[in-house]
Structures are given as C-alpha cells and as structure tokens.
C-alpha cells in the first residue's frame, strides 16, 4: 500500500515507458533520440503551463484563463516584433504582461474572495477579446515576423532547441521553488489544510495570489515561444489548451481538491499527453483519436487518485490500528 502511494510518479513513468514500447513495436523509429527530442520540444509549452497550473491547483484554485493569457501575450509579442522591438525587450514584456494578467486573477480571488473558476471563466473571454481589439481580428503571419524572432526558440544549443532548454530550466527552477522555498511549501500547506496554515502564520489569499502570478508569468513567456515556433498569431491560438493543461495535471496526480501534487508528476502527465499526440499518426491511428484517449486517461487518473485518498474513520479499536498500520506499511 505504502509502496503504491509513494510511487504514484513511478506508476506514471511506467505507463509512459509501456506507451513508448507499444509505439516502438509498430514504429521503432519513434524512440530514436532525434524523434524523442522532437516530442519533448513539441510538448514543452504543455509542460511549462502544467507546472503553472499545478501551483494554482495546489492552492485549491483553478486557472481557466491560462491559454487566453498565452494567446494575448503571444499576440503582443508579435505586434512588438512588427514594431521592431528587440527580442530581449519582447521577452521581458511578455513575462511582465503575463504576470500582470495572472495578478488580476489573483487579486480578484484574494481580495474579493470570488471563486477562481468564476474569475478565470470571465478573464478567459476578456483576454481573448482584447486580442481581437488589438488586431481587429487580423493574423500575424510568418512573413511579417523577423527571422530572429522566429529563430530564437528553434535555435539549436548543445543538441537541443532553445525552447526545450527553457522548458528544462523552468522545470529545474520549479523543483527548487516547490521543494526548497517557504513559498513552495506554503502552496501545499494552503491547499492541504487551510486552517492549519493560518495557525502557522501563512496567509491563504496571499499564497493563492502568488500562484496566479506564477501561472500568468509562465503563460506569458510561453505565449512568445508558441507564436515564434508556429510562426503565426491570431485570436484563437491555443484555443482549448487550458483543458489540456488541466488534463496534464490530473494525469500527473495533482489533486483537484488541492494540497497534493509533484513537479515530476505534472511533467510526466504533460509528457504522457505529448507522446500520445505525437505517436498516433505514426502508428496509423487517426490523430483524431487523441482527444478521446486523453479523456480516458483523465478518467483513469482521477479514479486512481481517488482510490488512494479515501478518508479513514477514527480507528478506535487497538488491534485495528495495528492492522491499518501494517497494511499501509
């Protein structure tokens, strides 16, 4: 029992390996390093946003505006590029803008106590609408983007594209943030036991605010990466992506009720979806099956997570206590 609980991540890793093995049986070239790097790069935005969504979900909230934030920041990046602004400034601008959009969500949740699902349901339509207002619905196409703008995320550095390096850096930063800073620990405390968090002097609202700012910042940065990599920006880019992000978290074992989750889990949840998406065409299954498969994966993951977190009674009988302790050991 304890083994299973401890290794939720191990089971997911095993599932990913089995998935890779199944694909390799039909199409061995899929697991060549070069292709795996492609898959990793392709999945980078999902991994980055899954980490952002994870901290929000850890604090018992949800951010449905994360993809709209991405799209808005991506469009702003494209517009700035057309205005001739250098890449460094663009990067800075999208990060700040993303953080501000996240902070707006966070403030409404923290200061006004509005449920996060309502807040982000509203801001998701507002943020997308603003893109339209900025562009009057026009697209920014590849030929309107400067080569540096498009090349930056794709440039190869030590065998990997910059975008993948950025993802790896974010995963590392997150590992430190989550496990080695008071804020990181506070995310778990606030979601796991809000009353006790107050006893230890942690502000629930402030911690939720911080989570939204982090998620927004990541969405802003990813907005630029997305637009530059696909070399196109329009109102509907990354439409519905917020649900893929939530799905990655759920598959990765992040508890929707808050307080439980891990960086490795979120990363692997995103990787699982990324591999499915990339593998379907090569094994000859219609890519249209991807959505149904991710739906089933979500349902299996929820059922699995729920099974391991059933509440126990008081356990009054002494011999029962020993039974339970032995059973879980």
């Amino acid at each position: 029992m304890r083994g299973i609980l401890k290794s939720r991540e191990a089971i997911l890793a095993l599932a990913i390996l089995v998935l890779l093995a199944l694909v390799a049986m039909r199409f061995p070239a899929f697991i060549l390093p070069g292709n795996l790097v492609n898959v990793l790069t392709d999945t980078s935005p999902l991994i980055i946003l899954a980490l952002g969504q994870m901290v929000v979900i850890l604090t018992k909230c949800i951010d449905l505006s994360i993809a709209a934030n991405l799209a808005l920041c991506g469009m702003v990046a494209g517009l700035l590029n057309m205005a001739g602004v250098p890449i460094v400034v663009i990067l800075l601008a999208v990060i700040v803008l993303g953080a501000l959009l996240g902070a707006f969500n966070g403030l409404l949740v923290w200061k006004l106590g509005i449920p996060s699902i309502v807040v982000t349901l509203g801001t998701m339509t507002i943020y997308r609408g603003i893109i339209f207002v900025l562009t009057a619905g026009k697209w920014i196409n590849a030929h309107q983007m400067s080569p540096e703008f498009k090349d930056f995320p794709r440039a190869i550095l030590l065998g990997l594209p910059v975008m993948t390096w950025i993802m790896i850096a974010i995963v590392l930063v997150f590992t430190v943030l989550i496990y080695r800073t008071p804020l990181g620990r506070a995310f778990f405390a606030v979601g796991g036991n809000p009353h006790a968090a107050v006893y230890t002097g942690i502000s629930v609202g402030r911690t939720q605010f911080a989570a939204f700012v982090i998620a927004g910042t990541l969405a802003g940065l990813t907005g630029y990466l997305w637009v530059a990599r696909y070399a196109v920006a329009y109102v509907d880019i990354a439409g519905g992506f917020e649900l893929d992000v939530v799905a990655a978290c759920v598959i990765g074992g992040v508890a929707i009720a808050g307080g439980a989750g891990s960086v490795a889990g979120a990363v692997m949840g995103a990787l699982f979806l990324g591999i499915v998406k990339n593998a379907l065409p090569v094994v000859g299954i219609s890519p249209f099956a991807q959505m149904a498969i991710s739906g089933i994966a979500i349902l299996v993951a929820i059922a699995f997570n729920a099974r391991s977190s059933r509440p126990k009674g008081r356990i009054i009988l002494k011999q029962a206590e020993h039974r339970v302790v032995e059973g879980s050991a």
Binding site: I62, L243, M291, G295, I298
Partner: peptide
C-alpha cells in the same frame, strides 16, 4: 469538475 473535463474530451 475533473470528471466532466475528462468526459468532455472523451
């Protein structure tokens, strides 16, 4: 909320 996000995809 998560169940119906899952069945939405399904």
């Amino acid at each position: 909320i998560v169940v119906t996000i899952g069945t939405m995809s399904l």
